[in-house]
Design a protein around this nucleic acid. Structure first.
Lengths: 334, 334
DNA sequence: CTGAAAGCGCTTACAG
DNA sequence: CTGAAAGCGCTTACAG
């Protein structure tokens, strides 16, 4: 609130250097000195000022979290995915009170340049970036020289400061489609926003592979929109095309499809098989429950944070690529 | 990235004071000097370092956001409420690139003392606190001398640095219950986690008032749990008690109740009337759609942020109390 | 309209 | 094991 290292030094009867040393465990010092400093600090309610500390050490202990934009600008609201991944990150950061997260939601109008200036201004020690970004922006990120953890980004290697974290998207698509086939469905559509997104494309590849193995035909239904609303439209489409099952590349799309079908009186699980991807809370909350691919988003957030912290503390190397396993969670929809 | 005020001064051929003046619009200066400084800054890619700035001005341009704990520690995942309110806050902060948010999720084990030290360390300029807190912690918050905006907190007045933001919870409870009565339901339960929470209690008061006016009996069903799981149990309870309608104090509870009832073959909307509170996205995504009380959470977040910024800029006074209107959104569940 | 000097609260070689 | 001194990048009276 006000006490500085000088106040503590005065009361403890030592120099500021010693106070600093005690707090940072730098130089050895006698046990008495240590205790004198600590008790003086406690008495004064002393807390080191990060701004001052940051200025001299050039470490802000701040992590920048980059989140992609959404159609309607409300990144967080758009999908529960972000909640969960944030909770995962905080679960790790909490144990390391030292590091704080600063979120940069990047809406379409906000030029990436602004974001860059922002990171300069706050002097972030590291970055976690979720989703896909322009190549030139990635170049710039890498150019900062600080560690970056990329989550759900399928950019190829070649940068020195990036580490990658993905789910096994292809396998997820494969497992989902295999399950629908095993359940006896024969006309299985893929419902997605757009296959232009690398992540959707990976999931599509798994879908295609499973269909090929079974000798079935692929039916790709795309609809660019916010996930739920897109799903609503895709549900109508699925009925028109007379497919009897769908693998959706996101749970929220599946929830939209389900809603559209229930409205038409289709019995989900019997007449129509539906599998999502993510295992968001909502997939267990709708009725009938949604069968889906669990990608453990919470762990993803935790691992992203852990990876970055380890690199910052020189406990890990940059450049790793980590792929999280996925698993099918069977509920009532297929 | 590296350029300092000195580098800029050198290139522009002026003193650091002048550079600082130009950037902060402090003293008047000739147009030529201004341009020289600006172009030098641009050339060098200069961005003022917040840590240094903060150290001398004693303003961090950091806002601390306090979020309450959840049963399972995963604050954000627990309810989509937080997404939306965050989006609302960011919508305001984005226009004011200068301010950043730092989130403090407060799980049960994290002593409030730690949080306090944290705010000291980061030297936050202001605080937004969502939910209820211990009286002693509120005392301490007020004692910091920085502005605090309390959201969904029903603590009484008496502190000098607090401003309050609430929804019209009582009216919401009243509207919801009135609606169920008008729909012809006669045995209307209130489903909630606990009436010990002031916010639930306010909603309960509206419920009670409406019932009294109609001469109906109140039936309070409580279940302390995460909202959805609690709702599941409350749904069972509602069937046993043979009530024919329920007003739930949160949408997520209502979603749980709905799930439990659908599972028993109850036709929601016809056999059973259900009204929630919040108007989360999920209330429009489940089938049948959930009738609910809209409290415009996005606006709540935006207003909270705006209120704090205005106070920080001396454009507004502390101590205001703002109550947001609520409105009933009719869907299919009642 | 512009600049020299002091200082914000801390850490970091360096000397003792 | 401990301390005096310089310095991190900025702003702020104050003088001119």
């Amino acid at each position: 609130m006000g006490a500085t290292v000088i106040d503590v030094a005065k009361i403890a009867g030592v120099s500021r250097t010693t106070v600093s040393n005690v707090f940072n465990g730098r130089a050895k010092c006698s046990e008495e000195t240590r205790e004198a400093v600590l008790s003086a600090a406690k008495q004064l309610g002393y807390t080191p000022n990060m701004a001052a500390k940051s200025l001299v050490t050039n470490q802000s202990h701040l992590i920048g979290l980059l989140l992609p934009s959404y159609v309607d600008n409300n990144t967080l609201t758009g999908s529960p995915f972000y909640n969960i991944i944030l909770d995962g990150m905080y679960s790790v950061l909490r144990e390391d009170e030292y590091y704080d997260l600063m979120i940069f939601c990047i809406p379409p109008q906000r030029v990436l340049q602004d974001v860059s200036a922002w990171m300069d201004m706050r002097n972030v020690d590291g970055i976690i970036a979720v989703g896909e970004y322009e190549r030139s922006f990635l170049d710039e990120l890498d150019g900062r020289g600080i560690p970056v953890v990329l989550v759900d980004n399928y950019a190829l290697n070649g940068w020195g400061h990036f580490s990658y974290l993905n789910s096994d998207d292809t396998r997820g698509g494969y497992l989902a489609t295999k399950h629908l086939i095993a359940r006896g469905f024969r006309s299985i559509a893929l419902c997605t926003s757009t296959l232009d997104s690398p992540i959707s494309h990976k999931r599509y590849e798994g879908y295609r592979q499973a269909l090929q193995e079974a000798g079935y035909q692929e039916i790709v239904l795309e609809k660019i929109h916010t996930p739920f609303e897109g799903g609503l439209a895709l549900g109508e489409e699925a009925i028109q095309q007379q497919v009897d099952a769908a693998f959706c590349t996101e749970d929220m799309i599946a929830v939209g499809v389900m809603n559209a079908l229930l409205r038409k009186g289709v019995r989900i699980g019997q007449d129509f098989g539906l599998v999502g991807f993510d295992n968001l809370n909502i997939s267990a909350q709708v009725y009938p429950g949604l069968t889906t691919i669990d990608q453990n988003i919470f762990a993803k957030g935790a691992i992203a944070a852990k990876t970055l912290l380890d690199i910052l503390k020189n406990d890990a190397l940059q450049g790793s690529r980590f792929i999280l396993p996925v698993v099918l969670v069977e509920r009532e929809s297929a």
